[in-house]
């Protein structure tokens, strides 16, 4: 075997090893990522599978026990209008939104979620969350709970209220309502 060939074989062994590592790790650790209404259409197919579910926390559904750290809430689809706006923004305007439910329909579809642990700072009713875990007996058992805040690093609240000065007072009036909406807030 020529020297060149030997090195070629050696290099391909490494490439193959990396590929195998990736392949097996993807199989073992991947999760389907979907919105609540996408999930609602295929509940059966996803029972017991690792899922990442994006939705909005239903108003008045949050139950939190600070002694046991058990958290229960319902998530519903993110209303179509905002989801579409988000989806377009998220794809740089090249992709159309996949969510087609109307607000009225959206209010009816809910998925119960259970979680144990500390509440994330930004968790509250009417906030968008991403939960990761599995569904058992119709209940989503979340291992992780992420608060998806589209403006996490940017203050685009500013734009919403910027129409009439003075903006800061208005914002002050708007935001605590959102923050205190949940049954349990951090404060």
């Amino acid at each position: 075997m020529s020297r060149k060939l030997k090195f070629l074989v050696g290099a391909s062994v490494i490439v193959l090893a990396v590929a195998t590592l990736i392949y097996s790790a993807v199989r073992e650790t991947s999760a389907y990522f979907m919105t609540v209404d996408e999930y609602a259409k295929s509940v059966e197919a996803h029972a017991g599978k690792q899922l990442r579910l994006a939705g909005r926390v239903s108003n008045g559904s949050v139950k939190w026990d600070p002694k046991t750290l058990d958290l229960e809430f319902l998530i519903r689809p993110i209303p179509a209008k905002e989801a579409a706006a988000n989806a377009v923004a998220h794809s740089g305007g090249t992709k159309t939104a996949t969510v087609t439910t109307t607000d009225a329909e959206a209010a009816l579809i809910t998925v119960p979620v259970r979680y144990n642990g500390i509440l994330p700072d930004m968790f509250a009713a009417d906030r968008d969350v991403i939960v990761e875990g599995k569904v058992e007996n119709g209940v989503f058992h979340a291992k992780t709970l992420l608060t998806a805040c589209p403006s996490k690093y940017e203050s685009d609240q500013y734009k919403e209220n910027a129409q009439d000065a003075p903006a800061s007072d208005q914002r002050a009036a708007l935001d605590p309502a959102a923050a205190a909406g949940a049954g349990a807030t951090a404060q």
Binding site: A25, V26, T29, S30, A31, Y32, F33, R52
Partner: peptide
């Protein structure tokens, strides 16, 4: 056509 994510374990 489905979004599959991999997290830190991957």
């Amino acid at each position: 056509g489905v979004k599959i994510t991999v997290g830190p374990p991957f």
